[in-house]
Amino acid sequence: MNTTNLRDLYQQVILEHYKKPKHRGKTNPIDRYQKGHNPSCGDTIELTLQLDPSGERIVDVQFEGEGCAIAMASVDLMAGALAGKSVDEALELVKIFQGMMKGETEFPQAQRKLNVMKGVAQFPVRIKCANLGWHTLKAALQLTGEAKLADFVTNETE
């Protein structure tokens, strides 16, 4: 597949996840909750996570929010990739995604769907949009104790 066709396919996947997200809503129960905001363009999300009884494995991830196609597609793709992952595995996926946005890496075969976001790295102003959900996920996973209303985290310093 040539580069133009691949880019078109990636754009189509991003638009589909934006228009028809599969993980919009709130988990039940909510074991972790975190709000994220990208002040550069106004994207906001509220991320909820359901963990298994041990608190070590992700059962479900859902989100609510408003934002551009890249931000919403990225968080939807992220949510779909996390079910069944341990907290440590999820944090490792955050590192891989952030590395991919710097052009340093990409996801292995098992998570190759997430590589559709790779093209965003060519547009530095949009990287914060793609990273918002991942940045918010990291903050949510680092919370301890009961789910609580947390302050907005921002990715403005990235």
Rank of each mutant, 00 (worst) to 15 (best):
residue 52 D to F: 15
residue 114 L to I: 06
residue 119 G to C: 13
residue 76 D to G: 02
residue 93 L to F: 05
residue 81 A to R: 11
residue 133 G to K: 01
residue 136 T to E: 00
residue 143 L to Y: 09
residue 29 P to N: 09
residue 58 I to F: 10
residue 50 Q to M: 15
residue 140 A to I: 08
residue 102 K to C: 01
residue 71 A to D: 06
residue 70 I to E: 01
residue 141 L to K: 06
residue 17 H to F: 08
residue 31 D to V: 11
residue 93 L to V: 03
residue 50 Q to F: 14
residue 61 V to Q: 10
residue 68 C to K: 02
residue 133 G to T: 10
residue 95 K to P: 03
residue 8 D to N: 10
residue 72 M to E: 02
residue 75 V to D: 01
residue 67 G to E: 04
residue 3 T to S: 05
residue 137 L to W: 03
residue 126 R to F: 11
residue 139 A to H: 07
residue 133 G to F: 03
residue 105 T to V: 12
residue 98 Q to S: 06
residue 52 D to Q: 13
residue 111 Q to G: 00
residue 59 V to P: 10
residue 152 F to L: 10
residue 118 K to T: 09
residue 85 K to V: 14
residue 141 L to Y: 11
residue 127 I to M: 01
residue 134 W to I: 02
residue 43 D to C: 00
residue 52 D to S: 13
residue 141 L to T: 05
residue 93 L to I: 08
residue 146 E to G: 05
residue 58 I to D: 04
residue 99 G to F: 09
residue 21 P to F: 04
residue 94 V to D: 03
residue 123 F to T: 08
residue 13 V to W: 04
residue 102 K to M: 11
residue 43 D to S: 04
residue 90 A to R: 06
residue 12 Q to T: 10
residue 21 P to A: 00
residue 49 L to E: 06
residue 145 G to Q: 07
residue 78 M to S: 03
residue 142 Q to A: 03
residue 49 L to P: 04
residue 29 P to F: 12
residue 105 T to A: 05
residue 107 F to L: 09
